[in-house]
Design a protein around this nucleic acid. Structure first.
Length: 273
DNA sequence: CTTATTCCCTGATTGC
DNA sequence: TGCAATCAGGGAATAA
């Protein structure tokens, strides 16, 4: 599941491979009719051909490929999407949903088992990312404002961390890991988080994301970077998918519960309501 | 405005 | 062993 650290790793990989390149050809598989948003797959491919790539950015879990003429090619990998660069053509993978040929002979391949991934070609990026909350690794991620958004919500804190309008880029893995670091029970009502606890959570989110970016993301099942390599952070997680294993801090068995319809892992000893 | 639920999709896992 | 039901999950859409 690509979250902020995984998408950022792919972005960093792609910058030297894509910057300055021109898209020579674009193809979307007929078995991926929902991949291109707001236009037909044909119009999407037509709009991409001949465009020069100026830079590769990121907003939350969205990859922003800035093109000439003020256009932006936006990619969201959702659950199982992979964006991989290949020098000699895309692999013969049954889940290959789209491929893009570059002017240096290289290829950008989009592989997505579950077909949840989406792409846009837009003039105005805000049309897609306009409602996102602050970037957790920017100065725009302000503690007081963060505590303010928590106070307005009565649902579980874990569900609020997954809300991309509160904070952009945190998904299931890093929500669980951040709550563990901050010592907060994921089921606790967001509006009952004290100011000091909100401060600890704010700090924990930044620390966890920075560490995970440093480790090139987590590879639990599907995720690989733009070169097809796994990340390392899954080797360091303290609660995520460690159900029934001992807490690395206090030895208590890690529990798994459902919060907001998502699997949630926590240590009953370290994380108090 | 908020909150909970459904849907998309397919490979892995669980149940009988 | 075999086949069906269930699960996983980001986020949009929908309902309340």
């Amino acid at each position: 599941m690509p979250e902020l650290p995984e998408v950022e790793t792919i972005r960093r990989d792609l910058v030297p491979l894509l910057r300055g390149r021109t898209v020579r050809d674009a193809w979307i598989s007929p078995n991926a009719p929902r991949l291109a948003q707001l236009m037909t797959p044909e119009a999407f491919c037509r709009g991409l051909r001949g465009r020069r790539i100026e830079d590769v950015g990121r907003r939350g879990k969205y990859l922003l490929i800035h093109l000439d003429g003020g256009l932006t090619w936006i990619v969201h990998l959702r659950m199982t999407g992979r964006l991989q660069h290949a020098r000699e053509g895309c692999p013969d993978d049954r889940h290959l949903r789209a491929k893009f040929k570059l002017d240096d002979g290289g290829w950008l391949c989009f592989i997505d088992m579950r077909k949840f991934g989406t792409m846009w070609l837009v003039d105005d990026v805000d049309l897609v990312t306009g409602k996102l909350g602050p970037e957790p690794l920017d100065e725009t991620f302000d503690v007081a404002a963060f505590h303010g958004s928590l106070k307005r919500r009565s649902t579980a804190i874990k569900a609020v961390l997954l809300d991309q309008t509160v904070l952009a880029g945190v998904g299931n893995i890093y929500a669980d890991e951040s709550l563990f670091r901050a010592g907060i029970d994921p089921r606790r009502a967001a509006n009952r988080i004290s100011r000091p606890a909100a401060g600890r959570l704010h700090e924990a989110i930044v620390e966890v994301l920075l560490e995970a970016v440093g480790d090139r993301g987590s590879s639990f099942q599907d995720y690989v970077d733009a070169r097809g390599e796994a990340g390392y952070y899954h080797l360091k997680v303290r609660v995520f998918r460690r159900t029934d294993e001992p807490c690395l801090v206090c030895g208590t068995a890690i529990r798994r519960v459902k919060v907001g319809g998502r699997s949630t892992h926590f240590c009953p000893g370290c994380q108090k309501r």
